[in-house]
Amino acid sequence: MSKRIVKVYPIFERLWHWMQMALIVILLLTGFSLNGQLGLVPFGPAVVFHTLAAGLLLMLWIFATFWLFTTGTWKQFIPRIEGMIETARFYALGVFRGEKHPYRKLYLRKHNPLQAATYFGLKWVIFPVIWVSGLFYLTYTLWEGGESAGVWIVVVANIHVLAGYVVACFVVVHVYLLTVGQGFRHHVRPMLTGYEEVDLTTEQEAYLEANEPDRLKPRGVPAQ
């Protein structure tokens, strides 16, 4: 085991993250504007930009899904029980005592167990719910002739709005957690530069030195 500065977030993943962030912010602002919670954007433009942003995000996710499966990165998002208790205990108690985060970032495991579980829930529950409800909402005129369509549109709309609130909650917690541990800048930097210090096994290090030297920074260089 040795600590090396490795490019853990390739360029596509970083672009994916930040474009996703921008689109989700637009979707939240326009969504809560047209829902009547925020007066930021008038209803008409809010609908237009909400729809446009949703379309772009959908396209981005098609690319991302393709990328996740072709590169094997999807494995990063599979949750596991191991380490979950320690991580939960850390956030509930240890963090107040200034303990170190129990999770050590590994090359093949970018996310701590809680993170992985959260992303798993987000990707497999919240996002599908918001997508499916959103698409049904958007295409109401195609199915309005169906039985009880007048009731279903209310159900669809309310599910969509509720899922939107959950996404807003995720954003709040996500941003807050960036301040935990070594601090905001430390957590954000890898998503900008791609590089982060991780523990590599001897084999991993040898593999990267031999096959992907670009992903490794020379020893002793700070991860800027």
Binding site: L34, G36, A157, L162
Partner: peptide
């Protein structure tokens, strides 16, 4: 059903 006409309905209250 008019989107935006009921921001403070049950869903709005639960969400908030």
């Amino acid at each position: 059903y008019l989107p935006g006409s009921d921001p403070n309905g049950l869903t709005g209250i639960i969400g908030k």
